[in-house]
Design a protein around this nucleic acid. Structure first.
Lengths: 333, 333
DNA sequence: GCAGGTCATCGAAGCGCTTCGACGCGAAGG
DNA sequence: CCTTCGCGTCGAAGCGCTTCGATGACCTGC
């Protein structure tokens, strides 16, 4: 059972190879009857175009690279949602997804781009000073970044508007009448790495708190129960008037609730808690967390769309910020 | 800046195209001086072989597909570890990884295989009656499964030996002198789907408990805090002598500890807890959990190795079970 | 000193596909 | 009635690489 080629289809349908190609690509007009005959032959023979040959001839691999750094302190479920949405969306554009990790570093990007294995790149977890960014500027292949480096000039970046997300949390707590609030963020290693989204959330939070005249502070937050417990305890000891907590750390969100329970603070009666995390985590907690959704699916879909537009040679906005959405549940009042 | 081809390298080095190819592939002897000259030209020109052309001519894409179903109730961090290890290991064999989800179903597998986009397949989260399995048997491309379907005859399967893992937990608790123990497993949806690993753990656990003459029982376990709390409470109410708990559900492990705390049971003084989960989760809990590691990295590495061996035409064992390893921490005594 | 054998290298034939230019034919225009 | 045009189709030329058989050059050994 040799594999079926376009020549087999052509012979079976009684047409030229090029005609089959044009039927399949739609790049030239083909009469309805011929088209149908070819399509039938394709189905009967079970023809699938050879990807390598197609890539070689057309200079389009129909594959995009998804670069997931997979580092410590990352938000796994969100990442998975994101990856799923990227794959699904890419398939809608008839593209496949090559998975890369950061292990290979910028060289890996260069390799897949130079070998024409992929037509474009999608980079996640972009850092403020990301070593991959200079390379990207040099590369012929279009790229889309999830997150913002220090200088996004000339790049295409997509992300949740984390500043707005931080602000939204502060706004919500202010509206509820809280006067003193705090933000618990990502593990400190994330800030040390200069990952933009964490800092932007803090900035937005601080700005909104100031605008409302609230007393506010923000700290990194580790992810073990004991450390979270210690951090929450210290916070409550030092700032007895504190009544609102924003948690921008998915792994810690559940632990914060556990710590408050142990420390004898009721949620939301004594302390209101707002999280920035995926809905499933928020819903699974007890009490269910008021949360700002990280719209991983939207981000992934949007990123793929932008990349496809760039592949078509269309101009796209350099910066795309997705509007955060606050869902009120049981943990705030 | 046109892209550099093998012809450019050949010209630059003053040799034939085929010589360059042989230098790069090592498939024929080439004199040391020529080899060096070619290698230098490759470096100077920054040559990267065109993946499509290579695939077309050699009938090897040097890409494998990784099929991640990404369904509800799955163990995300383990999955990510696994994916990372697959990518890293594949790169060591000079292969890349194409990421696929289950959305496309068996057709998707057929598509990537028939189009020669990939040389082999790695399937995760295999179910007892997995619709992809019959297709796999028909496919020319080699495949490796993570997990075991009902009839693994003629397939290549890798997994943690979950039966041994379940048994190990029961053994450990028996050795500590516990007389009545229970297993909290995956969400019930996972059992309904007939995912093999969950059932095998239960079976191994039950067998070992029986062997030690322990009173034991096993139940599915949902993942929200409230449901976990309710389940643990009911269990303790109904079985006051219960002193050992095995948790085979990563998302629930932390909640179980929280629930026990609320219910006034000390861990490990009143109840010993053993988890089957990744180390980082176990270490992050309070008290740190005695756990059986799900060796995601090993599984990934092993799976890729098997696949590469099959690609080379070597015979490989149909079944590879990885030995579980118990790490004793603070939650059991 | 020459047949026979190595070793290193070359040239050319594909691999399966896309795409460009060409061609034949019927319809429209003068 | 003859030219012009556009539509539908074909043939052939690559795309960049691997691989097979062939060709010298250089050693052996008798």
């Amino acid at each position: 059972m040799r594999t079926v080629t376009i020549a087999d289809v052509a012979k079976h349908a009684g047409v030229a190879v090029s005609t089959v190609s044009y039927v399949l690509s739609g790049k030239r007009a083909i009469s309805a009857t011929t088209r149908q005959r070819v399509l039938d032959s394709v189905r009967v023979l079970g023809y699938h175009p050879n990807a390598g040959a197609r890539a070689l001839a057309s200079k389009r691999a129909k594959v995009i690279a998804l670069v997931l750094p997979l580092r410590a302190g990352m938000n796994l479920p969100v990442l998975m949602q994101f990856a799923t949405s990227v794959v699904t969306t890419a398939r809608q554009y008839d593209h496949d997804v090559l998975l890369m990790t950061a292990d290979e570093g910028p060289d890996g990007l260069h390799r897949v781009a130079a070998s024409a294995l992929v037509d474009g790149l999608l980079l996640m977890d972009v850092e403020i000073h990301d070593p991959r960014v200079p390379l990207l500027r040099r590369l012929a292949e279009p790229a889309v970044l999830i997150g913002f480096p220090a200088d996004p000039e000339g790049l295409t970046c997509v992300d949740l508007d984390f500043a707005r997300a931080g602000a939204l949390c502060a706004d919500h707590l202010a509206d509820l009448g809280h006067r003193e609030i705090a933000l618990l963020g990502a593990p400190s290693v994330v800030y040390e790495r200069g990952t933009g989204f964490a800092e932007r959330t803090m900035a937005g939070f601080a700005e909104a708190a100031a605008r409302h005249g609230l007393k506010a502070g923000a700290w990194p937050c580790e992810e073990s129960f004991d450390e979270v417990h210690a951090a929450v305890k210290r916070l409550l000891d030092e700032r007895p008037e504190l009544s609102g907590l924003v948690v921008h750390n998915e792994a810690a969100a559940g632990h914060v609730l556990g710590a408050l329970r142990i420390l004898g603070r009721r949620v939301p009666e004594d302390v209101s808690v707002v999280a920035i995390c995926p809905d499933d985590i928020a819903e699974r907690a007890s009490p269910a967390l008021t949360s700002v959704l990280v719209p991983a699916e939207d981000v992934g879909r949007q990123a793929v769309r932008l990349l496809m537009a760039k592949l078509e040679g269309q101009a796209v906005p350099e910066s795309t910020l997705l509007e955060p959405r606050l869902t009120i549940r049981e943990s705030s009042r």
